[in-house]
Design a protein around this nucleic acid. Structure first.
Lengths: 242, 242
DNA sequence: CCCATATTCAAAGGAACGTTTGATTATGGA
DNA sequence: TCCATAATCAAACGTTCCTTTGAATATGGG
């Protein structure tokens, strides 16, 4: 066992922290308050949603299947922790993530959770189906293949989100038009689908559908926000969100 | 205002998510559970403490001024979320952060909090005192100055932590020997102090004490775990922690 | 100026959390 | 084998949190 380093010297800490305890408590309660803001499933969903771009309260309420009042409550709580900010446009109020650092925090949380929480695999299976037949491609791999014209890239998010920003060269295939549009894709190359992130259902749907038709298809390992955040090139179709 | 992109297309999401709601809830509750594990001031302190290295339950209890039973409770909760792991050595159980990703998550939380929570400045002031007279130096600046022999580096953590690992060339100045050892430092160069991280009091104490003696002194902007995590060189004095 | 719409606020019930207390389990040494 | 030590567990208290309900506030259009 040897020289036990681990319990030596702590008396010192205790001594020099005497009297500071209330202040230390308050400081760490501050960190805990921010963690607490994310410590609710619906609020976690909100953060994932706002990572896509700003959204109105009603829109958020709709997306997370909650009442507007409750959604507003959750949004206010996130705002109090500094995670989201607001912008008023007429009678509507738009919420957004305060900055990219908040997004980074969310990704770090997602990462740790998927790696360490025992049940997470069952949970993702229950939500997204068994993903074993769906192979993924990394961002850098995709970038290479696009440069060499070796892949057809499709964006399977709702049209409005495509318009607000997408990976250059991506073909818009809104999720409600999968069946109409997928067959018309060129048959010469592999197809890569992406949507909102690793927990977005659309890309999985598209890949499954293509595989069922005998096409070669993969999904981007994460999604558009990750692509954008990592500095990948971006293209906007229409007016920017004002 | 133009074409309102933000509320278009959401019906689709709602439709294709119908029936999946319970699974989606469960998945995001999983993320929330991990956030919830950090959503308590004492548990946040535990994470910051374990970022320094593994510690026994009693040690942790001592450091956070809580009963062993309560501390054990908090540690079990962190373990259930996958954030910490244990190792038994005889009659003691040592807790550690499960991996570096957990540390990254903690740093991301610390970062977001210090940048966005309104009261955090008052809280750090209350805990660490007004830091306006204490200037900092970044890790890369420090590395440069060390290479050019332009600074004396002191490690003001308890001796056991210094022994477990420190920045090469750092002189150990345990916090309980500040007054004895500080005056004997060479007077020809600026002194840089570091300890456990941005919220560790020792480096501040050392710098204040040196400034009061008319010496040029700064503190490393963060601390040893950050240095180590960013790939900086590390030196160990004695046996490794077994 | 009034009304419709979008959002927030306040109150209340039930659930989950944090701390304390006292008892229980597991290990190593006598 | 028995005892001391280290850690966990179980129950119970008060506190905080989440959701729902109904009312209140702010903005823009008629």
């Amino acid at each position: 066992m040897g020289y036990d380093l681990r319990d030596a010297g702590e008396k010192v800490t205790t001594q020099s922290t005497i009297g500071r305890r209330p202040a230390k408590n308050a400081l760490f309660d501050g960190f805990a308050a921010v963690a607490g803001a994310m410590a609710n499933g619906r609020r976690a969903e909100i953060i994932e949603l706002l990572a896509q771009g700003e959204r109105s309260v009603e829109h958020v309420a709709d997306a997370i299947d909650q009442s507007v009042a409750n959604t507003s409550h959750h949004l206010r709580r996130l705002a109090r922790a500094g995670l989201v900010s607001t912008r008023r446009d007429g009678t509507r109020i738009y919420y957004r993530l305060t900055d990219e650092r908040v997004y980074d925090l969310w990704v770090a949380l997602r990462d740790v959770t998927t790696r360490h929480l025992d049940d997470i695999d069952q949970l993702t299976d229950a939500y997204l189906g068994n993903r074993t037949e769906i192979t993924t491609i990394t961002r850098s791999e995709l970038q290479e293949r696009l440069q060499r014209d070796q892949a057809t890239l499709i964006d399977v998010r709702p049209r409005a989100e495509y318009d607000a920003g997408h990976i250059p060269g991506a073909i818009p295939i809104p999720p409600d038009q999968l069946d109409e549009l997928l067959p018309s894709l060129p048959a010469d190359r592999e197809i890569v689908a992406y949507c909102r992130g690793p927990y977005c259902v659309y890309a999985d749907q598209a890949v499954r559908s293509l595989l069922a038709r005998g096409r070669a298809a993969r999904r981007l390992e994460d999604g558009y926000p990750e692509w954008q955040r990592s500095g990948g090139p971006v293209e906007k179709s229409l007016l920017t969100i004002s």
